[in-house]
């Protein structure tokens, strides 16, 4: 066991997979000699060579198109998009090409591609670095979307993502990269994709969340317990496509109430889909409507007003108080 930050856990996972499977290739802008803009691929080119870990020209569509072609050739590409705000450049290659390859070829070809990309607010980035665009890919059949919130999950989920024989978008929250350390086993382990994790047990309200909002929700739940003596159950989705509705429904069966907390705008993210699935699977257990804690439907904010725009412990507490009063 070792204490690792999330970024260390990611590098460690990539190292293990490069060693385990010679078909694994890492590439993107500055991921080679430079080791990545966040050092996620630090030392890997030196260890595995330029044929396994390499830089690309600065063009996102080219990067994912390259991954598509390499997948057709039997490789297991792990391309990086430097910041997920740049994903629009590669939208066709992800949503129309990679995500559909198995389907449109009737299974002849498939794309075991894991697209890694940082995102997320709270670190004063310039424009289009922090946007939460995961919701766009919930609407793209054929691709899974994974968002870890801890070093332990990041490693286990990344190993699963790389080994999955279908495409996965693996989104890494920048604020969580180095914000805390956690015990992470040195050996290989996997966490199944599509499985949520109950990170705090409770009986009064279910909080469904992911990414950096997991930590915010946990703190709010702790504060709520102190203030009101009520216990919120916090579910870290870990995979937002597909959504683990079974775990959510089981929790609501116990609590009868739920809120969804996400960093994406109200109309974006996974929130609406979660609420819809709760309506389908758990409505008879609900004693109140499911509320959403999200930023407003504006463009991602200027750096100086980021903290006021993003959901906070206070906004989660407000929603908890509201949902129990309904």
């Amino acid at each position: 066991m070792a204490q690792m930050t999330m970024i260390q856990a990611i590098t460690h996972a990539l190292d293990l997979e490069l060693a385990r499977d010679e078909k694994v290739l890492l590439f993107g802008e500055d991921v080679g000699n430079n080791g990545g803009v966040f050092r996620a691929t630090e030392g890997l080119q030196k260890k595995y060579g330029e044929d396994r870990v390499f830089d690309t020209p600065l063009a996102e569509s080219g990067i994912i198109g390259l991954a598509n072609g390499l997948a057709v050739q039997g490789f297991r590409p792990v391309p990086e998009i430097q910041f997920f705000g740049f994903v629009f450049e590669a939208f066709d290659q992800i949503a129309s090409q990679i995500a559909r390859l198995r389907y449109r070829s009737g299974g002849r070809f498939h794309a075991p591609v894991t697209i890694r990309s940082p995102f997320g607010g709270g670190v004063r980035t310039p424009e289009l670095h922090s946007d939460s665009l995961e919701g766009l890919f919930l609407q793209s059949p054929g691709i899974k979307v994974v968002i870890p919130s801890t070093p332990y999950d990041a490693k286990g989920l990344l190993l699963s993502a790389i080994r999955d024989n279908d495409p996965v978008i693996f989104l890494e929250h920048m604020r969580l990269y180095r914000s805390f350390r956690q015990e992470v086993p040195e050996e290989e382990y996997t966490i199944p994709l599509g499985k949520a994790n109950v990170v705090r047990e409770g009986k009064d309200v279910t909080i469904v969340t992911y990414g950096a909002m997991v930590g915010v929700s946990q703190k709010a739940a702790d504060q709520w317990a102190k203030d009101k003596g009520l216990q919120a159950e916090v579910i870290d989705l870990r995979t937002i496509s597909p959504i683990d509705i079974e775990t959510i429904a089981a929790s609501i069966q116990k609590t009868g109430r739920a809120i969804v907390v996400q960093e994406a705008q109200r109309s974006a993210g996974a929130g609406a889909e979660i609420v819809a699935q709760i309506n389908e699977q758990a409505i008879f257990h609900l004693e109140a409507p499911v509320l959403r804690v999200t930023p407003p439907d504006t463009v991602y904010p200027y750096g100086l007003i980021e903290d006021e725009w993003l959901p906070t412990q206070q906004s989660v507490l407000a929603a908890l108080n509201k949902v129990v009063s309904l």
């Binding site: 569509s61 080219g62 994912i64 198109g65 390259l66 991954a67 598509n68 072609g69 390499l70 997948a71 057709v72 050739q73 039997g74 490789f75 066709d92 290659q93 129309s96 090409q97 449109r104 070829s105 009737g106 299974g107 002849r108 070809f109």
Partner: peptide, 28 residues
């Protein structure tokens, strides 16, 4: 469903998409 031993991709509808993919196939 192209036969397994035939090295052809399905016809591409998105004009240009095949060009970036070809760079990947060739690099492979």
């Amino acid at each position: 469903r192209v036969p397994d031993d035939v090295n052809v991709m399905m016809p591409q509808i998105i004009i240009g998409a095949q060009i970036v993919q070809t760079a990947g196939i060739a690099l492979g």
